[in-house]
Amino acid sequence: MLRINGLTVSHGAIRALDSVSFSVEQGGLTAVIGSNGAGKTTLMRTLSGLKSADSGSATWNDHNLLHGKPEHHVRQGISHVSEGKSVIPQLTVEENLDLGALWRRNPSEAKASKAEVFELFPRLEERRAQQADTLSGGERQMLAISRAYMARPQLLLLDEPSLGLAPLVIEQIFQSIRHIVDSMGVTVVLVEQNAMGALKIADFGVVLNLGKIAVSGAASDLIADPAVRTAYLGF
């Protein structure tokens, strides 16, 4: 279970997250939505260890997320796909995937994860020997998610996977994320500007506004909530 309590994070003098508290049950998909500058990306970067917090606590089961570097958290089952197609363009598709499993000591398990990834995204298998900068935007996002999946995460943090993609591709990526939650037993926290799309596939929703939690609850309740609809879903 992910528990966040009173989490406060600043960029210099600007407070990006102000006493944020929520928790996420194991095995669900939680969407964190909100407008630009609401603190969504800061939240993700703090949870994965890229950014340090001022105060508060964040734990995944017994593991303290506010202490240690990202490479440490990865080994405890927390993987983060950062904003903007987080792949290494100079490496091949397969090298990007291998990178995700580099720290795992068991090569046959890593191989099994790769097979799962190729089953989920057959396109990546076709292009395994190509350099990642030859991929389309959607394929890059598939590769970024797959790279994180190769680390065999329990908790997967996804930052704006829909950014800059065509609606049909977004639909496909979102379905794959849902599949990762349902069939592979991974807990996902999904940060999105595409609020409606994210809430539709999510179990729970958290709405951030200027660094604070505005509303949270079951995703279906949020979609039905008139205040959320006008402010964040635009109808």
């Binding site: 990202p70 993987s79 987080s86 290494i88 363009p89 490496l91 090298e95 720290w103």
Partner: peptide, 20 residues
């Protein structure tokens, strides 16, 4: 692979578990 990844994109390498 770790050397190349850390050279091209240290943050992604770090998020992948490489001790950069």
């Amino acid at each position: 692979l770790a050397l190349r990844a850390s050279a091209y994109a240290p943050e992604i390498a770090q998020l992948s578990g490489v001790r950069v």
